[in-house]
């Protein structure tokens, strides 16, 4: 059930897009449906790219925001974590 959702963290500071997206993709592959992931980045482009990646792959964006020089995206893993192979 929803209660067992875990919150995970991913640090992509200093990396430039598309690396934060790639790291997010690779991390999500190790998670399960319903898990939540908070990604922190210093590239403002991540605020466009990570939500776009989520829409394409069926993950839900719960929150996005900026904190000083950093941005963050919180997502919930959808049906398919993308780990087909």
């Amino acid at each position: 059930m929803e209660m067992s959702e875990a919150m995970h963290e991913l640090d992509t500071r200093r990396l430039l897009c598309p690396m934060p997206v790639i790291k997010t993709q690779n991390k999500v592959r190790t998670l399960s449906t319903g898990d939540c992931l908070r990604v922190v980045s210093t590239d403002p482009g991540a605020l466009n790219d990570i939500p776009a990646w989520c829409r394409i792959n069926g993950h839900e964006v719960l929150e996005t925001g900026e904190e000083g020089n950093e941005v963050f995206v919180v997502l919930r893993v959808g049906e398919d974590n993308g780990a087909l192979f």
């Binding site: 482009g45 790219d49 776009a52 829409r55 394409i56």
Partner: peptide, 10 residues
């Protein structure tokens, strides 16, 4: 600023 590959996929 968009990532074109992601945009195309969408």
């Amino acid at each position: 600023k968009r990532n074109n590959a992601l945009w195309v996929a969408e």
